[in-house]
């Protein structure tokens, strides 16, 4: 089982993502943007890690989405192989039309706008540990295949543009109806409260992650590779006291592995 961790100029999370891929027993390598796109077909799954590909020129993810390797990834996605985009990777998948999966750009990850009690209290880049609630049924999506519906996950975010918005009529309805909403921001007890700080970036309906209708392509703003070991957890999380244990984000990587095994 071999995973490609995609690398564009400006990507900055490829190494820790590869560490996580290997730690759950998958084989993997970093795949530089100017390698022959044809080589991608020999991989079983793909991560598009976070960073600032092409300096966020035009819009976050816009330039990378036009690279030949993205065309190749589209073909692999059509074959049902799993692709998980994290942070800037999510932005690239949206710009490439792979999410929400209509082939068109049907949504945007806009600048964070933190709203509390009707007031904008902050804008832009934000880094913190937050909580997610898993919204899809298990086995729905490649990156949360092993996660039960309603399960909670503590995980960090670090982005300036994670505020999911869409003006396509019926799109929110469709995402909800077809269980394409994979994670929402919530408080530590699992309550979704649609304002800052629980909805950390102003995202519509507190959405943090979505998948395509087939479920093999997942985009998420939070970083599971940074929540992979318990020692990475924030000081106030009691699980940090057991530093050698797995962290919550590991389930995303295990899910992809299981998804590939089941699909084979």
């Amino acid at each position: 089982m071999k995973i490609a961790v995609m690398q564009f100029p400006g990507t900055n999370c490829e190494h820790e993502t590869l560490v996580a891929v290997k730690a759950v027993g998958m084989d993997g390598e970093i795949f530089r943007w100017n390698r022959s796109a044809g080589e991608l077909s020999s991989f079983d799954g793909y991560f598009i890690p976070g960073g600032f590909s092409y300096q966020d020129r035009v819009r976050a993810g816009a330039i990378a989405s036009k690279e030949p390797v993205l065309e190749a990834l589209r073909e692999e996605a059509a074959r049902g192989k799993p692709i998980i985009g994290i942070c800037n990777g999510f932005q690239i998948l949206v710009e490439a039309g792979l999410l929400p999966g209509t082939g068109k750009i049907d949504m945007a990850l806009a600048q964070n706008v933190m709203v509390s009690k009707g007031q904008i209290v902050r804008r832009g880049y934000y880094c913190d540990w937050i909580n997610l609630r898993h919204e899809a049924p298990s086995r729905r999506c490649s990156g949360s295949f092993l996660i039960e519906k309603g399960a909670l996950m503590r995980i960090p975010i670090a982005h300036g543009e994670g505020n999911l918005v869409t003006t396509t009529p019926g799109m929110m309805q469709k995402l909800n109806d077809e269980a394409q909403v994979v994670f929402r921001y919530c408080d530590k007890n699992g309550r979704v409260i649609n304002e800052f700080p629980v909805n950390v970036n102003g995202s519509t309906e507190s959405i943090a992650a979505i998948c395509n209708p087939e479920g093999n392509v997942l985009g998420m703003m939070p970083h599971p590779e940074r929540s992979f070991f318990a020692w990475q957890l924030p000081a106030f999380d009691p699980k940090k006291q057991r530093p050698d244990e797995p962290g919550p984000g590991r389930r995303v990587f295990e899910s992809m592995k299981h998804y590939i095994e089941v699909s084979a």
Partner: peptide, 20 residues
């Protein structure tokens, strides 16, 4: 201020600004 800083990239942070 420190919420503007990416303290988590590289996945190596153990104790972050404000924690100690």
């Amino acid at each position: 201020v420190y919420r503007y800083y990416d303290t988590e990239v590289m996945g190596s942070a153990v104790i972050r600004p404000g924690e100690a």
